[in-house]
Computed example of a mutant assay.
Amino acid sequence: MDLSLNGILPPLLLVAAFAITLVAAFVKGATGFAMPMIMISGLASFLSPELALAGLILPTLVTNGMQALRDGPAAAWDAVRRYRLFFLIGGVFLVLSGQLVTAVNPRIIYALIGVPIMLFGVAQLSGWKPAITSEHRRRAEIGLGAVAGGIGGISGVWGPPLVMYLTALDTPKTEQVRVQGVGFGMASILLLGTHLQTGVLNAQTVPFSVILLAPALAGMWLGQRVHDRLDQAMFRRMTLAVLVVAGLNLIRRAVF
């Protein structure tokens, strides 16, 4: 589909794209994640996968920056320092697994990660509450960092393992959202560079991604207002509910 500043999409489809982006950004503002999952699932239902992917790149990059820097650069840098092992291991495995993207069926990856994520969310919502103790934290950080990077390089989905890790640590909600913003922000920069190179993001598709910034910023602002009013217990339940939806969506992608 050709895009231009004068006629990016038919009005009805443009309204639908705005609505999907607004909802996705609202969920991200409230829980700190799931924006790309919601956008790609919604936009790809009536746009080509390439155009849907191009559309989410700039909104996710900007909102991740907002999320990571909401409490200032010093707090964001502290998150990088404290979780540097997870980010380092995840980055290495993302680069390595990316070389296998043509050799591994992504549907297998979606199933392998979607089922555990969904079960983890359902079990915790049902009352099971595992905890990562201080003596096991390093091993958990390495293991889940490797899983996040490994599936991210092949499937483009790297967020849920980080959310699982932070949830199991019972991370305070403000810190959890900040760490997720930092981690997802790093991945967004990588995604931007990758698709400038592949041509998915180009002179014809950039305008679409740019205009989706407006609903993304509005949804993010609204979601953050809700986030500020949530107590820790409600934030945890909302996060787990979104994790269950994320897992089910991955299973859907594996099956269909």
Rank of each mutant, 00 (worst) to 15 (best):
T21S: 13
L88Y: 00
V115K: 10
S134C: 08
M37T: 14
V95P: 00
M35F: 03
F46V: 07
A54H: 03
V122Y: 06
I20R: 08
Q224G: 06
A52F: 04
T194I: 11
A241K: 07
W221H: 13
A24N: 07
K173N: 08
L94E: 01
G72Y: 11
P73Q: 12
L112F: 12
F184C: 10
R70G: 01
S126W: 15
M186V: 00
T171M: 11
G114P: 05
I251F: 07
L190K: 08
A203S: 15
G159W: 14
L96T: 02
G183H: 01
I151S: 06
V163H: 04
A44L: 03
G29M: 10
V122W: 07
L169I: 06
A214L: 15
G98R: 01
G32A: 09
V80E: 01
G181N: 09
T198I: 12
E135I: 13
F120S: 05
E175I: 15
R82W: 05
V244I: 15
L22P: 04
D231F: 03
I154L: 10
G159R: 11
R252T: 12
L12G: 08
Y83L: 02
S155Q: 07
E141P: 12
M1L: 12
G149Q: 09
G65I: 02
L12M: 13
L88A: 03
L69Q: 02
L61H: 03
S126G: 12
L196V: 10
V242M: 12
L125Y: 08
L22V: 06
M234P: 00
R253I: 12
D170M: 13
A30Q: 11
W77K: 13
T174S: 14
G223Q: 06
R236G: 01
A76W: 09
I20E: 07
T239D: 02
G193I: 06
G98T: 01
I113F: 04
R252G: 04
P207I: 13
V115W: 06
G223F: 03
Q180D: 10
L169F: 09
G29F: 05
S188W: 01
P106L: 10
F18I: 12
L96W: 05
E135A: 10
N64D: 07
M238I: 14
L144H: 05
L144Y: 07
G183V: 01
L5Y: 14
F18Q: 02
A187G: 06
L53G: 06
A187H: 07
P11L: 14
P160A: 11
P130Y: 02
I89G: 00
S209V: 11
V226A: 10
V122I: 15
L250V: 05
W128H: 12
P59E: 10
L166S: 04
K129L: 11
L191Y: 04
F87N: 00
T239N: 05
M35T: 09
L162I: 10
A75V: 14
